[in-house]
Amino acid sequence: MEPLLSVRDLTVTFGSFTAVDGVSFDLHEGQTLAVVGESGSGKSVTALSIMRLVELGTRGKIENGEILFRQPGGEVIDLVQQREDDMRKIRGNAISMIFQEPLTSLNPVYPVGDQVAEAVMLHQGLEKAEAAERVLEMFRLVRIPEPEKRMVQYPHEMSGGMRQRVMIAMALSCDPKVLIADEPTTALDVTIQAQILGLMRDLREQTGAAVLIITHDMGVVAEVADDVVVMNRAKVVEHGPAVDIFENPAEPYTQALLASVPRLGSMQGRSEPAPFELVEYDS
């Protein structure tokens, strides 16, 4: 089947620094694909490039490659070639994104309900009253307790977990085809992370949106991903189904990475602490 989103030979530079170097992968409908890597691997820049947000505010430049996106109408467009005006109609609409810091990704001066309403009024041309109804519906979908009360609250009046639910509600409010989640649970406590990961899995089934999740956490990858793209130093190192990557990593880098991942339960039956059995990897 034809992919929903196809990144082909993407190269992104910041001045003389190459942040993403010839990256290719496909994202299919209903699939959850994790792009995993350590800091500086280029995973976040890849995500921002799909949204065409690397050029704004920073000196990033998409040097080469295509990002083919199959629009809801069936027409395939190259996002790299889109003008800013056209990208604006896609962002938050057919492709939406959530960020790592739920504390700072909401505007502190507006109530959270207004901010979600803004998105639907912008893309779907709803009136304020209809937008408010939609917000309420979305808050219920992401299981925000007492949604009527929460809508009028300001970001600082909510916990990190609730704020991330608001961000997810905003991202899903226009029924996107692709949801890009950049380290969505990294700033959250582990019990809240578990709730958000559970919610994201549940929502994928309900909404059918494909999910591209950017993370450094192999535990999160194992929890949600169907397929995995491993990145290191701007390049794709390995790409395959999650089970294969975890059980039979082919590349030395992936092997080294997995060897240094602490796994809960790996110490069962041992009385003394034990060091990691690291795999040497020459970069």
Binding site: G57, I90, G92, S96, M97, F99, T104, L106
Partner: peptide, 16 residues
């Protein structure tokens, strides 16, 4: 303010 996350988020929602 322009480099704060919520500005990036607004852009990701498609704001002009």
């Amino acid at each position: 303010l322009k480099n704060l996350e919520f500005v990036k988020a607004a852009r990701a929602v498609g704001a002009s």
